[in-house]
Nucleic acid binder design. Sequence first.
DNA 1: AAACGGTTTAACCATTTGGTCAAAGATATG
DNA 2: CATATCTTTGACCAAATGGTTAAACCGTTT
Lengths: 220, 220
Amino acid sequence: MTKWLNRLIKPNTQMSEKEKINTEEKILQAAEEIFVKDGHSGARMQQIADKAGINKSLLHYYYRSKDKLFSTVFKFIFSKLASDIMNIFDSEEDIFGKLEKFIENYLRILMKNPIIPMFILNELNKKGNNLATIIIKGSNINLNKFEEIIQKEIDAGNIKNINPKSLIINILALCVFPIIGRPLTEEIVFNGDTKKYDEYLGQRKDEVFAIIKSTITIEK
Amino acid sequence: MTKWLNRLIKPNTQMSEKEKINTEEKILQAAEEIFVKDGHSGARMQQIADKAGINKSLLHYYYRSKDKLFSTVFKFIFSKLASDIMNIFDSEEDIFGKLEKFIENYLRILMKNPIIPMFILNELNKKGNNLATIIIKGSNINLNKFEEIIQKEIDAGNIKNINPKSLIINILALCVFPIIGRPLTEEIVFNGDTKKYDEYLGQRKDEVFAIIKSTITIEK
DNA sequence: AAACGGTTTAACCATTTGGTCAAAGATATG
DNA sequence: CATATCTTTGACCAAATGGTTAAACCGTTT
């Protein structure tokens, strides 16, 4: 009973055996794949068990219910993405270089995980979802730091006096939309030409940076 | 047997009685509400029947299966939104005025139906979804016209030599993201302040137009 | 080897869910 | 009115689904 209780209280407690971790890990990986692909209500416990190569009962042994398993997976995915993003602003360049790096890295991450943002937005938009606030507040995302940096640059007269909040939203919008809107935009803008769309995404970072740059540059 | 067959072949056939349309209409409205709120896999047929105030069997009588009902609803919603958008470009102003009107109207529509875009994007991103191509191709969305207009302006030297496809994507991105990303951005950028976010959305159109304008304006 | 605690499984369960069917109610038609 | 067609309902069904349980399994400790 001890280990079991331990896992509930301190989920990250390391277990003495190294092999046994594998099951929990396998479940998590399988669940991640299925949940991301099908969403909470679309995913099936049996499907996850099959993908993990284990009995369905084991899912309930390690994670008591579908909801618990889901929220674990969601938290995991979100924090992984969030930390990836947050680690980006540590470069020592000027504000323009920082923004360029940020956009470049963010787009790279999104393109490497193209279904993750849709998954997150989709679940966040579900009615009666307290998960959003809970998880986001629990995450290490800290945009105050970002806003401070921008404000400092404005005060120093290096960039236009824009709203830092808008800047964030615009960057996110311009980066995220081509990924989550792909089925739509690829079809309606690129007439379904997948290769062309890939090319487009490849140079999207330059486009986004150019736009963002123009919104903050002081005209002479 | 005739009417029933008729409905399958020509779904929009008007029926002789005026009252009887009500049931089909009630189902459609209820289904629209439920599907948009819960998505395809989250919605329940019983739920829809209850909301429509009818027997569940009637759902299957009018629309043979859940999938058929869903695709009908989806098609309906999508074309409604699409035509709303397409009817916007008929103003007689110059290109800047046209774009401003477009952004203004598009944002207004989105804000009036804030969960529709998420619904559409979400379903379009489902694996194995042929609905996307089918419905989009069947819609009256025609961006060639838009691209032509832009190209003409470029040739006339009125705007910068930009990629019309990028212009479309940027407008969509800047308009749609604040709506579909609201749970996220409201929390992480506005610290959960709903009123502030509403205010922000209220003046978003000016922001978006300013950005779009700056991306096409020729600097002297 | 026996006892113990964590792990895994198969069988099972209650409920939900999409869907069917036969029959009853309407409504038009001859 | 009688007949045929269309509409609506309640009872029912098979499959799916999240979840439980008792027992088997297995490594460790004594």
